[in-house]
Design a protein around this nucleic acid. Sequence first.
DNA 1: CGCGACGTTGATTTGCCTCAACGATTGTGG
DNA 2: CCACAATCGTTGAGGCAAATCAACGTCGCG
Lengths: 205, 205
Amino acid sequence: MKPDQSQAAIYQLLSYFSAFIPLSRVEKDLLVSKVQWKRFRKHQFVLQEGDVCRQINFVISGCLRTYKIDEQGNIHILQFAIENSWINDLGSFHSFVPSTLNIDALEDTEVLQISYENLISLYTEAPKFDKVFRVLIENAYIGLQKRLLLNISSTAEERFRSFSETYPNLTNRLSQVQIAAYLGVSPEFLSRLRSKAAKSSSPKP
Amino acid sequence: MKPDQSQAAIYQLLSYFSAFIPLSRVEKDLLVSKVQWKRFRKHQFVLQEGDVCRQINFVISGCLRTYKIDEQGNIHILQFAIENSWINDLGSFHSFVPSTLNIDALEDTEVLQISYENLISLYTEAPKFDKVFRVLIENAYIGLQKRLLLNISSTAEERFRSFSETYPNLTNRLSQVQIAAYLGVSPEFLSRLRSKAAKSSSPKP
DNA sequence: CGCGACGTTGATTTGCCTCAACGATTGTGG
DNA sequence: CCACAATCGTTGAGGCAAATCAACGTCGCG
């Protein structure tokens, strides 16, 4: 591990875990020994389509996104990850198959990574992490289910409202192109939705 | 536990687990002591909107569905569960909040249930089940992610083709109304898709 | 038997996309 | 530090995918 920045990053990771489950000194040390600090520049790839996803990523600062490119070349965003979020391609990670997804940086970003081998040994040496990651992924599953439901049952307008309310910070931080690709609408249509929403919320005299 | 049918059900559950992780005699006995056999008639509710989801369900035979009713009264299906599938509302189950989802039976159905208390004690007494359920939910997450991607990036026609290929058995077993509510299209439109697909695959002379 | 779900088909409407053009902003290399 | 390119957000016109509404035959079930 590098000193300096990585020390602060590790402190952040431990705080994150402590917030929802207490870890012993031994467990903390073990965890720290398994993570690796890394930095990505804006536009840099964290994972490229065709490669196997070999580590899970915990974002310390900045912003990453997971997306897929379809046959027509359109981008569809599965997930954004800002500070204190996890991001990776679980399917590829667990089955060692080449990923069909891309992960890249929307801002300069710091992450802590855990490789597959390290994660396995983490589970083996401290089974409590089975529980920790079970809870983490349960929450991710619940969130994903909500999003799917919103997608199959709502109009683009409702999805956008819901997104703005759920992630008010992301709404300013991301460009509309990114948000449109996440909501599954064209940037042009999102623009119309926004102007419509602005009009109805503050009717100019 | 009841004898007879429930014995066969328990055997089925143990086979299911053994297929992807070995369990010791002790772990098997513990698991068995935590489950309860139950039967639901066609149309019967397993979970109703407004109630807290208090157990997870493993389907032995038959078919259940999770769905949501929107403001206009339309039904949107999140999941079907046939033999050897799990079904429940995880969000409600873990947070003790009233569910916004319904689960009911599309056929007469047998399940094995594990209550919240029993699941917690199962985790406590045999931490290996943390790992077991971590893996289960990881797989569920991966599947859900695929479905979401399909929904935001594909036309109804592609989604239907994908569904037919992924679940050929369900395609016959379920009514088109159910499949339409799962795919997020109107039953009428699904009907048109089907007739179009039939035409193109076997062009009548 | 009769009633209500189901599947089908037609006509019309609508939510959203595509293509295109335009300023405003960003960023990049000379 | 400026010039030029690239990206972004906006707006308009036209088109397509899918919803809606409606009518009709069929089937299973009480």
